[in-house]
């Protein structure tokens, strides 16, 4: 037995671990910085020492406290949680379809969720005035599953990934068209609500939202992490995964359910958000130089959080006081990444 090789393996392992640590450190640092900047900037600028006092000591002027605690903090947290969920959902779909360009938005899953939520809002808001977070999430989940079901049906007969993506985009269009149809015939008071939501934004988040979203997404993320090992096996393809002891059938169902819950929760709170689910896992995997789910899952979540927080910041301040749709920002940053991926894939083919 040669000790030389084992030690060379150790060296390689050490190098990898250092890289992982560096990536996580950078993400965490950016997270903190963006959080501070996010609280700091807006219509009312609040200085950093006031922020720290307000957050940790709950002291300051009443206005500052209100702005920080009631508006900015829940919004930032929600952007972080939902961004993480969206990225993770994308990562799961990419694993499922064995293709890095799959994501909840391009496959029409977010749009499906949007359709059902819109339907629910028009139906319920007219009679009862408000819809609970849970009902919204449930509706979004149902819509996600319907879209996913369609995609799965198509994927049965189409093995070709680009055809599948086109099918997903078409489903997205159909759902959006139906949503627009609903909006057209809804009464004005319903629309105001619906319109805001369907544009996609992290604005108007409450602590209640944060709690509900945090619980669902937290639970789903833990479950995803527990699936890290079979996800790793699945990266070698279905047949090898099975020979490694993965019950492929059950695993696929778990994957679809979890990715649907994650993206549905996002859609329920913030509307459909594009490209985060594709761009973030891709960037994270390059940064870590591995696809090993044990590290990719937490890093993707953190990366998605940072990505959405930055996007939200830009959406808020770029053309203040006019706020941009969140998807406007995520598309501008996310879509080029996807194009870059496509070009690389084409080059990679021999």
């Amino acid at each position: 037995m040669s000790n030389h090789e084992i030690s060379s393996y150790h060296a390689e392992n050490l190098k990898r671990r250092m890289r992982y640590t560096a990536v996580f450190a950078v993400l965490a640092a950016v997270f903190l910085i963006v959080t501070v900047i996010n609280i700091n900037t807006g219509n009312v600028d609040i200085s950093i020492d006031k922020i720290l006092k307000a957050v940790f000591l709950r002291s300051g002027t009443k206005d500052d406290l209100n702005i920080i605690w009631k508006i900015r903090l829940p919004r930032i947290l929600m952007a972080a949680i939902l961004g993480g969920a969206l990225s993770l959902s994308g990562f799961l779909l990419q694993t499922f379809f064995e293709n890095p360009i799959a994501g909840p938005f391009v496959l029409g899953i977010s749009s499906g969720a949007k359709l059902i939520v819109a339907f629910l809002m028009i139906l319920v808001v007219a009679r009862h005035g408000a819809v609970s977070s849970w009902a919204m999430i449930l509706a979004a989940f149902a819509g996600s599953l319907v879209s996913t079901g369609f995609i799965l049906l198509v994927s049965r007969s189409v093995r070709n990934m680009s055809a599948l993506l086109v099918a997903g985009i078409m489903i997205g269009y159909i759902c959006t068209a139906l949503t627009n149809l609903l909006v057209t015939f809804a009464s004005d008071s319903d629309i105001a609500n619906l319109h805001n939501w369907s544009q996609g934004s992290f604005s108007g988040m409450t602590w209640d939202n944060v709690l509900v979203g945090g619980i669902i997404i937290g639970a789903a993320t833990v479950l995803v992490f527990l699936l890290a090992k079979p996800i790793g096996a699945f990266q070698l393809g279905e047949a090898y995964a099975q020979s490694m002891g993965v019950n492929v059938r059950q695993f696929r169902i778990a994957l679809i359910l979890l990715s649907s819950i994650l993206s549905a929760t996002v859609t329920a709170f913030a509307g459909p958000i594009s490209f985060v689910g594709i761009a973030v896992p891709f960037l994270i995997k390059r940064a870590l130089n591995t696809a090993n789910p044990i590290v990719v899952i937490p890093a993707t979540f953190l990366g998605g959080a940072v990505f959405c927080m930055i996007s939200d910041l830009i959406a808020r301040v770029a053309f203040a006081p006019t706020e941009l749709e969140i998807s406007t920002v995520t598309s501008i940053f996310g879509a080029p990444v996807v194009i870059f991926m496509l070009i690389r894939r084409q080059k990679g083919k021999r």
Partner: peptide
């Protein structure tokens, strides 16, 4: 254990 004919394209492995 199995050795299969199908093509494998694992990412970054």
């Amino acid at each position: 254990a199995v050795v299969l004919t199908e093509r494998l394209h694992p990412e970054l492995m």
